[in-house]
Design a protein around this nucleic acid. Structure first.
Lengths: 187, 187
DNA sequence: GTCTATACGAAGATAGAC
DNA sequence: GTCTATCTTCGTATAGAC
């Protein structure tokens, strides 16, 4: 007897996990059902738009959670962003046995075949993150133009580090990058 | 009247392009045929092992070409590596309308579902790149331990930058990252 | 070496029973 | 809200003609 959106919630959590591992185009109804244990009849009940609707809601669901974390860290400055993100990704990588990455970047980089709209939506979400991090640099005294550059470099290096952690099945790339990042983005 | 392996070669080129955009799991026989214009009957003629064989040969084919470029650049030092890779990725991104990335990293990060072997093969290829770049740092006077860290950071930052270029449909992330990367040598 | 036809399986989507 | 067909599409693979 699931309460309000409990099945729905479980499906979204499962879909986020799949999207982390395989991107939006890897989110299949069958796998979400298998991982969530939800009944097949629930799919078109909770997501009348079918697979595309499920993917869209999964993307927003994942994006909002990450945005919240990033903005809270950004309020405490650029160093806090690095610290918090390294902490977060360490946990994600270990919990997934080095299989999970960022669902939003994965979706922006490679949208599902007949659906560029979802790719643009992912790009918008990412742009918000870039803005939040740039704000942290600005408040830390970095001139406006260079704040954007520093934010881009920080996010690029961390995203690449996560990819390399998945590739090497090790946390070393993340730690290597984190150790050097303060010098790369400081004047 | 195709000579020796001309059809085969065209199929491999097409497969590399698909692998750049969608990773190994996105390499389907149908799409390779469509892009290469090769006849359907050629598939099992040139690749008796079917799709898995095609993927494996595509990975090696792409990996060797990149390894060659990287080693030639590494022989000229860390700055030459950055310059050469930025040049290379600028062209790849523009030619593909920001759809293409690195086929080897894509395959290592997310191997096709029933085939972890290909993922390990991709990881090995990548490890060779890391070694080549670390050698360049060592020869430039960076102490051994830090050469590995610098190489990892360089490759991570560039890979992340390419992802962000695809996300933002712009070359800015690549140029932003390239501007600060030379500081790695002076650490 | 190349082409057509076909078998087979996976996955999305819909309809109808409970 | 949930479950069970069923239809369709797509992709892999094989067989057999040319």
């Amino acid at each position: 007897m699931p309460a309000h959106g409990e099945t729905r919630r479980r499906m979204l959590d499962a879909a986020v996990a799949v999207m982390r591992e395989k991107g939006a185009s890897g989110v299949t109804i069958d796998e979400v059902l298998a991982r969530s244990g939800a009944p097949r009849g629930s799919v078109y009940h909770h997501f009348p738009g079918g697979r595309q609707a499920l993917i869209r809601e999964t993307l927003d669901y994942a994006g909002e959670s990450y945005s919240g974390m990033l903005e809270r860290a950004a309020a405490r400055g650029p160093d806090a962003v690095v610290t918090r993100l390294v902490e977060f990704w360490t946990r994600v990588l270990l919990d997934s046995d080095y299989r999970a990455g960022c669902p939003v970047v994965a979706t922006a980089v490679r949208p599902p075949d007949g659906n560029e709209v979802i790719g643009r939506r992912a790009a918008e979400i990412f742009a918000g993150w870039q803005l939040a991090v740039a704000g942290a640099f600005t408040r830390a005294g970095v001139p406006g133009r260079q704040s954007a550059t520093a934010a881009t470099t920080l996010l690029a290096a961390l995203d690449g580090a996560v990819s390399l952690c998945r590739t090497t099945r090790s946390l070393a790339p993340l730690n290597d990058v984190a150790a050097v990042l303060p010098r790369l983005v400081t004047l």
